[in-house]
Design a protein around this nucleic acid. Structure first.
Lengths: 351, 351
DNA sequence: GAATTGTGAGCGCTCACAATT
DNA sequence: GAATTGTGAGCGCTCACAATT
């Protein structure tokens, strides 16, 4: 017999009790299933999940936070990569954590400065974060990784060039992506191709170069010229000058990121070269500069927001598992890249 | 006599009950004071606030969210302003809302497209946001403002050039800031000054121009050349070419934002001009590009993160007041700007 | 009557343990 | 004994109302 409901505001929201009733179990069992805990019989789990789906149940995060011992607080240490990258990254981080009730703590940090890095990590530790997400370039900082590992804090790196067995990461396959782009240039008919490398402190730089070289192996008649860059616009200017000063100019230049590709376009225009008629220019990342520019850049799209979101998701999964006494193996999440063809590329002009 | 505490995890955290006990009132009274409700005697309020401060009480947001009828969800509609601006803005929004338990909902929107703007607003309304923060340039969109007002959603605009009586805003005094910068150039000794205007769809553009002109009125011997820009790097390139093509070149160029100032530096270098020896270049905003560049830009610092944080704070205050039945007057929050002197400015070369 | 303060219950979940298989 | 499920209380706040000034 149903008691008269209290006079309180009626919320017509599905709760854990509704799910429990439908599944014929206790609310605690529903809680176990929803939180992916072990020691739930498979048939029970399925019954609960069925009820969850049927009722479209979404756990109340406020209640979970209040009832559970600790709060999920995720730290993000960011340095000054391309601002375009950071804003896309933050959008992804936000979108994912907002819905999961995780608190975010952002800490700025000068990159390539071990002292500053250690201080940033310490600040996160002092703030009792449960996990940390590292966007590039800090995702490859030994200092940061070691300090976090020493403190036993779950960490996920984003956009590292390679997977390493002691750090979960979310990345694209940089090598395959660079290979795809190079093959695209070869298919257009280019045979003299300049390549601008990324910063040597990031493994993605080497991977992209490897991919570039791998594609060229299938075109023995092609000539490659490789110069160093550092992912910045100014370094791209300098690299472009070097490549375009060659006696026989390349007909295409592949820059390891969009900022440097934008610099190549800038230098080309200064020299009176039409892009793409006289020079094809392609980039990597698909950050906002690639469409701000004229001509818009052909580039490799890294789904930055989705990667950030995936990193948060992975981190939450790992911290939850850790709380449950399991120590999850570091995971290597590879997300698909896409080649985005825009106006900065075309077949070379017939000689 | 103290009962044996439950076997449950002991949290040694200050709660509303601790404050109530110390202040000699009921928890509900503490709740009223903390939430800034009316109908609390002034002496009671003071006693409670004293206890809050003494114990360093911070309300548990999860408990508040669970107990109170509705959730605070703040929408942010962003378009594609400078990426550097957006990332700073998001950092501020995040820092402020994380600590206040507000959920954030980001919606991207193509600017200057009324249909897209209406769709974005509708998405926020459908998601039951309690308030909306508008970064530029959407903070000045009539479409967006009207749609939100029609839906009765509290809104705060950021970095609008002027205050209007129907919209709370957080901004710097653009006119005064531009006047300061211009006076700085005059004090350095410049008498031929180029000015690149911002996009005409933002009131800040006009304010900055007004400030520039106001400062020049005190230097009757100075000559000004004003050209149109649109806040983008390419528009800055074009404007710089126009200014530097003049028979008598300006010795200083004041661009209405950093992106355009960076473009001016780029054009100057292309023409073999040394910055600042041959040409002083100054910007506005102090976004990350101003220090990435060489020489680093002298510019006006807008504390973007702090402004975003202030906007969130103001919004929370307004929605809370509205819940309490009060209709707060739109507020005009002006935050201080600062002139940041770096390497791109110097006295003009003696003729 | 209006302004101010307090009371008891309840928001939706998870804890620690107990009970069952 | 181990694996699985349930029980009762409690997390820290605010609601609706009642009681007091």
């Amino acid at each position: 017999m149903q008691m008269n409901r209290s006079t309180r505001r009626t919320r017509n929201v599905i709760t854990i009790n509704d799910v429990a009733r439908l599944a014929g179990v206790s609310p605690m069992t529903v809680s176990r299933v929803v939180n992916d805990e072990k020691n739930v019989r498979e048939s029970t789990r399925e019954a609960v999940l069925l009820a969850v789906r049927e009722l479209n149940y979404v756990p109340n995060l406020a209640a979970r936070n209040l009832a559970s011992a600790e709060h999920v607080r995720i730290g993000v240490i960011y340095s000054n990569p391309s601002a375009a990258y950071l804003s896309e990254f933050l959008v992804g981080v936000l979108d994912e954590s907002a819905g999961k009730g995780a608190e975010l703590l952002l800490v700025k940090c000068e990159a390539s400065n071990p002292d500053a890095e250690r201080i940033s990590v310490q600040r996160l530790i002092d703030s009792a974060v449960t996990g940390v997400v590292l966007p590039p370039p800090l995702s490859e900082s030994d200092t940061v990784r070691e300090a976090l590992q020493a403190a036993g804090i779950a960490t996920v790196g984003v956009a590292t060039g390679r997977f390493r067995s002691d750090l979960s990461c979310v990345r694209v396959d940089d090598r395959a992506a660079a290979e795809d782009m190079t093959r695209y240039l070869l298919d257009l008919g280019h045979r003299r191709i300049g390549f601008i490398k990324g910063h040597p402190n990031q493994t993605a730089s080497a991977e992209r170069l490897t991919g570039f070289r791998a594609a060229l192996r299938h075109a023995p008649d092609a000539k490659a010229e490789v110069v160093q860059g550092y992912f910045t616009f100014p370094s791209g200017l300098e690299a472009a000058e070097r490549l375009l000063d060659a006696e026989v100019r390349p007909t295409a230049i592949f820059a390891s990121n969009d900022d440097m590709a934008a610099a190549v376009v800038s230098v080309a225009h200064r020299r009176g070269l039409d892009v793409p008629r006289d020079l094809t220019v392609v980039g990597f990342d698909d950050t906002s500069i690639s469409t701000t520019l004229w001509p818009a850049l052909t580039t490799v799209r890294q789904p930055v927001s989705a990667m950030a979101a995936a990193a948060i998701d992975l981190l939450l999964r790992e911290t939850r598992a850790a709380k449950d006494g399991r120590t999850p193996e570091p995971t290597d999440v590879i997300v698909p890249h896409t080649l985005v063809e825009r106006q900065s590329s075309s077949p070379p002009r017939p000689a």
